[in-house]
Design a protein around this nucleic acid. Sequence first.
DNA 1: CTGAAAGCGCTTACAG
DNA 2: CTGAAAGCGCTTACAG
Lengths: 338, 338
Amino acid sequence: MVTIEDVARAAGVSKGTVSLVYSGKRPISPATRARVLDAAAELDWVPSSRARALATRRSQTIGLVLARDPEIIATDSFFARFVAGAESVLATRSMGLLLQVVSTPEQERDAYRSLARGRADAVILTDLLVDDPRPALLADLRLPAVVVGASPDPAPHPRVLSDDRAAVRDVVDHLVGLGHERIAHVSGPAGYVHGHDRRAAFVDAMAAHGLDPALVVEGDFSAQSGREATARLLDADDRPSAIVYANDVMAIAGLNHAQSRGVRVPDDLAITGFDDIELAAHLTPSLTTVQTDVVSWGRRAAEVLLRHLDGAVPEDAWIAPSRLVVRESTAGAPAART
Amino acid sequence: MVTIEDVARAAGVSKGTVSLVYSGKRPISPATRARVLDAAAELDWVPSSRARALATRRSQTIGLVLARDPEIIATDSFFARFVAGAESVLATRSMGLLLQVVSTPEQERDAYRSLARGRADAVILTDLLVDDPRPALLADLRLPAVVVGASPDPAPHPRVLSDDRAAVRDVVDHLVGLGHERIAHVSGPAGYVHGHDRRAAFVDAMAAHGLDPALVVEGDFSAQSGREATARLLDADDRPSAIVYANDVMAIAGLNHAQSRGVRVPDDLAITGFDDIELAAHLTPSLTTVQTDVVSWGRRAAEVLLRHLDGAVPEDAWIAPSRLVVRESTAGAPAART
DNA sequence: CTGAAAGCGCTTACAG
DNA sequence: CTGAAAGCGCTTACAG
C-alpha cells in the first residue's frame, strides 16, 4: 500500500508538507504544491481515512440509528428520501452516513455507544418518542446530535422543525369549508412526538371550529392499520363524513377499503393523507394530502450538524411549511392532478 | 478520553493483555481477564474503533453506493428493506453500513475510491447496469464486493441470486390459464440487468405459449411512467387484455389510470405487479403480484460478504424463489387477501 | 500465560 | 515556507 511516506519521498519533501498540501491548513509554495500533487497522482495515492481519523479524532461520519420495524421503514418512504437529502450535503464535505437498524432498546443503546467511541462524529435523531431517553444518553456520551422534527422543550440539541400544526389546521379548514362536520382522524402511534403532535393539532383545529374532535383512532402508519381503523370508523353508528389520516399509506388503504364496501369517495366520504408520496397523485380518486419536503429535512439536518461540528453555536432550523395539496379525494370534481 | 493505557494501568497489566481480553485471539487466565473487565467497566471504557481500524487495517464497515434518483429510491421500497436485512446480519459482528448516494458517474467513481482507501472493507453492488463498469473498477481497487441480483457471467464477484425468470413465467402462465392472449409488459429501465432480464423472461414465457410478445413498453419504476405506459397501451388499436408490470408502483398507477377511464379491472383488463409492497393487498381490487423477499436479499448479501472477508472462497448464494401471489386484479372473484 | 516495543498512516505543535 | 518528531489509541509479532 502506498503511503504518505512514499509520496513525500517521491516529491522530495517531508510527510508534514504532503499533509499540509491536502488540508490547506498552512500556505505551501506553488512549486512544492505542484511537486506533491504530481507525485501523489503518479503513485495514485489518496490519504488513508483510517489514519486520518485517528490523528484528527474525527471519523468524518454521521450516524443514523433506526429503531423501527423494517416493514414500516419501507412503506413509510420517509427514510430513503431523508437519507438522500442528508447525503447530498454530507457528500460535499466527503462525510459518510453510517446506518444502523436496531430492534431492541439495548441494541439501540449499544449502537449509540459504539458510534460515540469513534465511529461517528455526530448523529441524527429521528422519530422522537414522548419521553425519549436518547437526548439525555447522547448528552451523556458527549455525542453531538440534531433532532429531526418536534422534540420536547427545552431541547438539549438543535432541531430541524416544520410547522405540521398549520398543515393539519389547513386540512381541517378545507374539509369544514366543504361542509363536513363529522371529521375523524386516524393518527400515527401516540408514543411518537410527531404522531402525538399531529393528533393534538387535529383536536385543536376541530375545537377552533366548534366541532367535536372525539373521533380519533390510533394507527401505526401501516396499510393494515389504516384499513382496520377505517373499518372501525365506518362500522360505527356516528359514521364520519371525512377522515384525516396521519400518512398516505394509511389513507390509501382506507380509501380502498371504503370503496370495496361501496362507500363512494369523495361523495360519501372525503379522505386526506399526509406525505404526498408519488402514488397519491395517481390514484382514483387522487389523494388530497399534505406535501412534506423530506429531502429538505435531510439536507437541513446535515447542515445543522456540520455547522455544529464546525464549532458554531447550534441553532434550530425551520423547513418550509408543509403544503396542503387538494385533489379528488376531497374535491369531488375531477380536479387537476398535481 | 480514557484509553487502553488507563485500563491497563488500573488492572495492573500491559496494554497488549487488555487488547487480547477483548479480541480473544489468545488465551488469558480467568483472573487476569476478570481484573481487566472490571477495570474497563469501572472506567467505562470501550475500545476506540478509530485506533483499531488503523492497527488492524479493517474499518468494520460495509459500503453501499446508490446511484439512483432519490424519488425512485423512495418509491421503490427496495432500499429500506434491503438495508434492514443487511444490517441485521452486520450488527451481529458489530459492523456498520456506510451509505452513499451519488448522482453522477464521477461522484460514483470517487465514492468507491474513497471507500477503498479505508472507509469500507467491502461493498455491496445493487442495480447492475448492462455493461456495468463497477465490477472492473472494484477489482481494480481490490475492494471485495458482492453483487445483488443478476450480473453478467462470468462474475468477478460473488452474487446473491433469485430466479426471477421462473416468477415471470408463473405470471404469464397464470394469465394464459385465465384465457388471456393479448398480454402486454411494462418493463423496468432496459439499461438495468434486472429490468432487461425480466423483460427477456416475459418474451420467453410468451413465446413458450406461442403468443406474440411484441407489446412491451419501457417504464422506469415510477408511478408516472406506469401511468403513461398504461395510457399508451390502452390507446392502441390492439389493446391488451392483461398487463404485466415490472413493479407494484407502476402496476398500481396503471390500475388506477385504467379505472379512471372506465376500464374495469380485472373484467376488462387483468393487472399484475412485482414486489408485493404492503399496499398491494389493500387495494380495490387487490393486486396480483410476485412476492420478493427483499429483507433476505439484504441478509444474504451481508452473509456472503462476511464469509468473503473471513477468507472463505466467495460463492454465489441463492434466495428462495419469488412467489406468485394471486389476488383480485387477475382473479375476478373476491379472493382471500394475503 | 504475559510484557515491552514496534507499527498502523496520518496530523500538528515546535523550531527554524 | 518547510522539516523532524511526537502523538493519535489500538494490535501483534517477538521474547520470555
